[in-house]
């Protein structure tokens, strides 16, 4: 059983070069239960990455706290796997070695960690690319490797920060189906950040809408679409209805950003 609790977490970046301090995140509460797939939806600059980095332990909140199964998060750890917005594969390791990185840090013997890595390589559809360097992969393949790398470590919760943000629409759709397939099969607890409304609905069991700067949670919408979901669901009336609702929510936020800019 995994429960992630975000309690009154806020983050203010201190003033620099005479600029005013940036209030990136207002006090925020969010609870994610076992095997939840929560998507966080918000316009650019609303503090989504900031919130995720705090959960990962890569950044410290100015106020409030994050607990995972009752234990306070004070730094990064293998129990919270992360897939970053930018490409972060280790360029000196092959696909297989990249995926096995976390296992290696834990001291799993080589034969075993390669066996595990190869299973994940199949799951994300990268068979035949085991010995390729990251440089030789397309962006989509790199992000699939990054997802496999996070999964191979078997974290309690998987944090994804706009992992498909830089991909074209077709690739993005395929990747969404792949990720959802893994979740439907293996039941993982997932916190997924995106600014794409369709992506948020298609993947999530719950969509959390964040408001523009200073970031805070504006609305939470349950997605009661049945599983397993295929791409066809994106054209059903229920999906379209949800989408319209979220478009309205996001639009007002985006307008606010535009006015401030």
């Amino acid at each position: 059983m995994t429960t992630l609790k975000i309690e009154q977490v806020s983050r203010t970046f201190p003033a620099r070069h005479g600029n005013a301090p940036t209030r990136a995140l207002e006090p925020t509460d969010l609870t994610i239960g076992n095997n939840d797939f929560v998507t966080i939806l918000g316009p650019s600059g609303c503090g989504k990455s900031t919130l995720l980095r705090i959960v990962a332990g890569l950044d410290r909140p100015t106020g409030g706290r994050v607990t995972l199964d009752g234990r306070e998060v004070t730094g990064p750890g293998a129990d919270r796997g992360m897939v970053f917005q930018s490409y972060t594969l280790f360029p000196w390791l092959t696909v297989r070695e990249n995926i096995a990185f976390g296992l290696r840090e834990r001291g799993v013997p080589q034969a075993e960690r390669y066996k595990i890595a190869d299973a994940f390589i199949r799951q994300v559809g990268l068979s035949g690319f085991e010995n390729h360097w990251p440089k030789q992969l397309s962006g989509g393949m790199q992000q699939r490797t990054a997802i496999a790398r996070a999964l191979a470590n078997d974290p309690k919760i998987l944090l994804l920060d706009e992992p498909f943000g830089a991909l074209d629409n077709q690739t993005r759709a395929l990747m969404q189906e792949m990720l959802l397939g893994i979740w439907e099969r293996d039941q993982k607890t997932v916190l997924f950040v995106t600014h794409d409304i369709e992506e948020a609905i298609f993947l999530g069991s719950r969509v959390v809408v964040m408001s523009a700067r200073p970031g805070r949670i504006k609305a939470e919408i349950a997605v009661d679409l049945p599983h397993p979901r295929s791409y066809k669901i994106k054209t059903t009336p229920e999906f379209v209805q949800l989408k319209e609702r979220l478009v309205e929510e996001i639009r007002t936020e985006a307008l606010k950003v535009a006015e401030h800019a």
Partner: peptide
């Protein structure tokens, strides 16, 4: 970002130096 990725994969200080800073 590579150092951070290694941390989220459970690397400790020694692992960061030997398996991230050095090879990179």
């Amino acid at each position: 970002d590579l150092v951070e990725a290694a941390y989220t994969l459970g690397a400790r200080d020694r692992g960061i130096i030997r398996r991230v800073l050095l090879p990179s």
